[in-house]
Design a protein around this nucleic acid. Structure first.
Lengths: 238, 238
DNA sequence: ATTATCTATAGATCTATAGATAATGC
DNA sequence: ATTATCTATAGATCTATAGATAATGC
């Protein structure tokens, strides 16, 4: 295996180990075993455990532009607000489950919140913070169209409150055994949490009913995620 | 120092160490230093590091009844819904900041979500899950009074969605440097997140405006928390 | 010749214990 | 006499490196 390939394979194997155990508890032996190499080889590719960890963070956080493009193309208004919130929930609550990185991303995110928050910041900014101007514009247009009521909640909060709800819901599903008793299936829970968020943001009930149609949004948003490489391309039989 | 006193003092000193570093990264040396004793003495009181950790969890999760009593005394209806959500936000988002256990509880909670979730479960059930029947009754009364709209969100979710939002907001404040850019001060953010939650739950705008009066709720709920020992009793000059 | 990889191990650190000493209460 | 506490250290494990060996490409 070439140096570059091996390097990549070590990183790939290390992600779930760090995600599962945390930086301190993941031993170089664990990492070597996961990658199927000797501990010594780890140190040919990375000067230290810290360096390997830093490289992982960098790789995962590197942004991609397809989500950017999708959001930029939206017309300001209530419908776009619904689409953005749907997108956020899909990425945060759902994609990480099916994504190759699986449970690793949410785990790395909270491990980072226990420390300096840097990973969470680097992961979140290129993906979600860029939505802010679009959310602000859409909220303005929605208010002008009388589809959103006046309330003290700020545009920043219209972005982060739904994002945070999605994040907690995701964290709550990490342990094997259920932590909170929701009495709903994940997909219904997702729909209800989006509804809760849209209403919490100030959209009127008629507006939510008009634009929040999961059966239409689901394939549209799913396609964005496929293009962003966050979901496997649906099987092309041939 | 008597065995019992020393035992308590070791537990007390160990909480922030485990909270900060996590179980694996907290060394017996750290724990001994924090308690101001030798490592050997730790092992006179606890057979292992794990045992010490288990004792901490047990102590923190032991429930108290004053919150229970307050919630039980509420009359079903919109106003009680507002009070319960306010209480949840105050405990989850705010109390842990001022409480002697400070940052430790939210840290222990997410560390537990990275593992089996047991600590989170034991902490949450006696404090919040018991509110469920009251939330359900109050939601029913609110609907009957036309103060709450029909929507797919379930009563369980009326409990957990606000709780989760409060939890994420708290987690986001753990790192020194700000992770998400809210553009609001914590107390304003708390108010807005509660408003967002109440509206998300289905309360009408008029009902929220009628019952959500922070300047009145703040001292009432604060008093509950003082009685629950979650907040220092306000200074009694004399 | 160069690159990838391994075995073996140094040196540090970690958990836990053995055995000695200081402090307390009868 | 009993209880609390310490010093010293065993044994395991962890990070990282030195030096040897196998595989590759010119």
């Amino acid at each position: 295996m070439s140096a570059e390939q091996r390097r990549e394979s070590i990183i790939k194997a290390a992600i779930p180990v760090f995600a599962k155990k945390g930086f301190a508890a993941a031993t170089t032996k664990d990492l070597a075993n996961a990658a199927g190499v000797s501990e010594a080889l780890l140190y040919r590719h990375f000067p230290s455990k810290e360096s390997l960890y830093a490289n992982i963070q960098e790789q995962i956080c590197s942004s991609d532009s397809s989500i950017h493009d999708y959001v930029n193309a939206l017309q300001p208004g209530s419908e776009s607000l619904v689409k953005m919130i749907y997108l956020i929930f899909k990425i945060v609550f759902e994609v990480n489950v099916t994504h190759p990185l699986g449970r690793s991303i949410p785990r790395l995110m909270i491990q980072s919140l226990l420390e300096d928050g840097e990973f969470t910041r680097s992961f979140t900014e290129p993906r979600f913070k860029q939505m802010l101007p679009h959310i602000a514009e859409s909220a303005k247009a929605a208010r002008a169209a009388r589809e959103m009521v006046e309330m003290p909640v700020k545009d920043y909060e219209r972005l982060w409150f739904p994002h945070h709800l999605a994040m907690s819901l995701r964290l709550a599903t990490l342990p094997e055994e259920e932590v909170f008793d929701y009495a709903t299936e994940p997909s219904e829970r997702k729909r209800n949490a989006i509804w809760f968020s849209l209403r919490g943001m100030g959209l009127t009930d008629e507006t939510i009913k008009k634009y929040f149609k999961p059966e239409i949004l689901e394939p549209e948003i799913d396609d964005v995620l496929v293009r962003a490489g966050m979901r496997p391309r649906p099987g092309i039989s041939g």
